[in-house]
Simulated assay, not measured.
Amino acid sequence: MTKAVVVYATITGNNEDVADLVTDALENLGVEVDEKEITMADVADFNDADICVVCPYTYDEGALPEEGLDFYDDLREADLTGKIYGVAGSGDTFYADDYCRAVDDFGKAFEDANATKGSENLHIDLAPEADDVKKIDAFAAELVKQAKN
């Protein structure tokens, strides 16, 4: 059975909602999912997973989540060769160039860890709405397809 670990960081609850939707979409595709808040997670949790997902928020002017800095640093130094990754997160388009920057930063960290991109980074404006659920379902389907290749 395909296994996934979904890690999220949230202040407003939007990224927990994103993580819940990713988890639901993966489970609907027959994946066994372990969802964790970032302070309760360790990069080693990805060792037993086929699919690794992070749902971070972007703070202020493009900053990573404070409580996820150690996780981010550990991720950049990990070796996730053979793992499929995806990054999805909520942001606020008000911040223009800094919109969802943490999503892209975590994507780069997965690349540094030699993981294989399973889907394009998914940026969601504020709380996920009906059209975002469709994007999340497609995101999850791409991850599963890559994991089965």
Rank of each mutant, 00 (worst) to 15 (best):
D45V: 03
D98C: 07
V18H: 06
D98N: 13
I51S: 09
D70P: 00
G82S: 09
L29R: 13
T81L: 03
D60C: 03
D73M: 06
T23P: 07
K36S: 07
G86K: 10
L29E: 15
C52K: 06
G89P: 12
L75M: 12
P56L: 10
D60G: 14
A19I: 11
Y8G: 01
A102I: 11
A78V: 00
F71D: 01
V53E: 12
D104K: 11
D105M: 13
K36I: 09
G62V: 03
E67N: 09
N15L: 08
G91E: 00
D24I: 02
A41I: 06
C100P: 06
D70V: 04
I84L: 10
V7H: 12
N14S: 14
G86V: 05
D79W: 03
C52F: 10
I38G: 02
V87I: 12
G68Y: 03
N28D: 15
D48T: 14
E67F: 02
I38C: 03
N14F: 14
D98W: 01
A49M: 08
A88H: 13
E67R: 01
K36R: 15
E61K: 04
Y85E: 04
T81C: 07
A102V: 12
L69D: 02
Y85K: 03
V103W: 08
C55H: 02
D105Q: 14
T12L: 07
L69T: 02
R101Q: 14
D105F: 01
V87T: 12
T93V: 11
D74F: 05
G91Y: 01
D45S: 07
E77I: 00
D60I: 03
L21P: 00
C100G: 05
E27L: 04
A63D: 15
R76F: 01
T12E: 04
G68K: 08
A102H: 13
V43D: 08
G82D: 13
P65M: 01
I84T: 15
